[in-house]
Amino acid sequence: MSQRTPVNKTRHTAKDERCFDIVIYSVAAVIMLIVLYPLLFVVSASFSDPAKVLGGEVWLLPKGVTLDAYINILQNDKIWTGYGNSILYTAVGTTINILMTLLAAYPLSRPDLPLRKGLMLIVTLTMFFSGGLIPTYLLVKDLGMVDTMWALIIPGAVSTYNLIVMRTYFQSSIPWELQEAAHIDGCSNWRLLISIILPLSKPILAVMVLFYAVGHWNSFFNALIYIRREEMYPLQLVLREILLISQSDAVDGSVGLEDKVLLAESIKYAVIIVSSLPVLIMYPFVQRHFVKGVMIGSIKG
């Protein structure tokens, strides 16, 4: 790996630097290709004639362009119900997440809160030890949440990591003197939170909304264990059925190139696109905020 420093410095360093740059830029290009290729392939395949996709003719650009798969999805009720459910769960879930995280993060950010260390310990300990899947499942079941949307929302109402990120932001970005001054003017803690802290915290709130919303949109496991009624399935569970379960059926049975198989195959690509669309459309606009969130989190380490 290590490159020797040439003895004759002035002459060779310039050339060395050039070579080094070329290597760096090519490696970066290869990495970008590796990351993008599967995504581009899926996009192309979703617009292609399924027979050509199955025949292995599609490499990069669509072959035999058709919108059949998308039209098929438009008519698929399951996918639309899933979409609707996911939007609902994401909206309600994220609202509760933000409220709960805010209500925990703000008081815990106050240097004058008695017993703050102890309360913080209650919170951080949970990052390192948990009761595990089974006791949590039994608890949610005992609380009567199975087959309700609350099973997907309440057990994950606060992410300890996000709480710590938000608390760090309050401590480092909002001057304590400002809060003190407000107190002297007779401002209560609730009003302080609502009319001073919140307006100053828009960037971190945006980050939190994004973190939580993407988490809800992409999660499937809680729904897998807590939701039995199909009409309540979030999109990811519907996807799992279309992408993964139907596939193993096809492997078990004899794989013929029947219309049904073809159709099932072509839907897969389109469904991947349709389901990832909300997040990917948002991505260019919010990407900066996400990165900021990770950075704030890393201040605390």
């Binding site: 709960m100 995280t101 209500l103 925990a104 703000y106 008081p107 815990l108 106050r110 004058d112 809160l113 008695p114 017993l115 309360l119 209650i122 919170v123 949970t126 030890f129 948990s130 009761g131 595990g132 089974i134 006791p135 949590t136 039994l138 608890l139 309440i154 057990p155 109402a157 606060v158 209560s188 803690n189 609730w190 939170l193």
Partner: peptide, 30 residues
Amino acid sequence: QMAKRYDLYLMLLLPIAWYLIFHYGPLYGL
């Protein structure tokens, strides 16, 4: 000191209760 800041504890009430139920509850169930 705590009584002076009772409203901060009011804010914490729900989240801490949640932590006790959904993180420490399963520990009891263990």
